[in-house]
């Protein structure tokens, strides 16, 4: 367990805070949760760096997928879930294709994002997509300019999806409500979210 520095000076306490890794920093269930959700052998990472070397986000940010793999192996749950870089994976799966241990690091990231959502850690744009799908069935709904263009092409103004058949929307809502997804999204957005 990290030593508390009771120096009565928050700035100093932060500067000199205990950096040792203690086994108590780990949540072993985190690795298990990641493995279940990602359906990949996340514990088998041997830190070769192929993933980061393949990553289009790495060269333009501090995002290092290898670091998230390490945090997963060690069960460093809060360190992983609170790192905003978690949301910079474009899910291109290049790391997954090249990983010599046959792990899917991309799916590890997806699993960690799912786990972050359980702690209400989630960027607003993701929640807005949730709301759009809940309300319209589409993540990117139709608009008037497009409707006009569709008609000009001889298509229906609204496509034969939930737009053309809105009676299908309640089915989608029922499924999402089953997981209380919309309520959670609304609540997090209302509370100010990230």
């Amino acid at each position: 367990m990290a030593t508390d520095k009771n120096y009565g000076n928050p700035e100093l306490e932060n500067k000199l805070r205990d950096r040792y890794y203690y086994t108590t920093d780990s949540n072993p269930e985190f690795l298990e949760d990641v493995k279940t959700l990602s359906r990949t052998i996340a514990h088998m990472c041997f830190q070769c760096g192929t993933c980061t070397g393949s990553c289009p986000s790495a060269p333009r940010s501090s995002y290092r997928i290898r670091l998230f793999m390490r945090r997963g192996v060690l069960g460093l749950e809060q360190e992983a879930l609170n790192d905003p870089d978690l949301w910079l994976c474009t899910t291109c799966y290049s790391c997954t294709d090249r990983c010599p241990r046959d792990i899917a690091p991309t799916d590890v990231i997806m699993a960690m994002r799912n786990l972050a959502f359980k702690y209400d850690i989630v960027p607003r744009n993701f929640l807005k997509t949730v709301q759009l799908i809940y309300n319209t069935g589409h993540g990117v709904p139709n608009n008037d300019v497009n409707r006009a263009a569709r008609v000009k092409l001889g298509l229906t103004a609204d496509p034969p999806t939930t737009h053309g058949y809105p009676e299908f929307i309640p089915g989608i809502q029922k499924i999402m409500d089953h997981y209380e997804m919309k309520d959670n999204a609304d609540r997090i957005l209302a509370e100010g979210g990230q």
Binding site: Q47, C48, G49, T50, C51, T52, G53, S54, C55, A58, P59, R64, R66, L67
Partner: peptide, 13 residues
């Protein structure tokens, strides 16, 4: 050649 210098924590090109 693309990889990560895992000791530096930086991607390399």
């Amino acid at each position: 050649v693309f990889t990560e210098d895992t000791l530096l924590g930086r991607p390399l090109s």
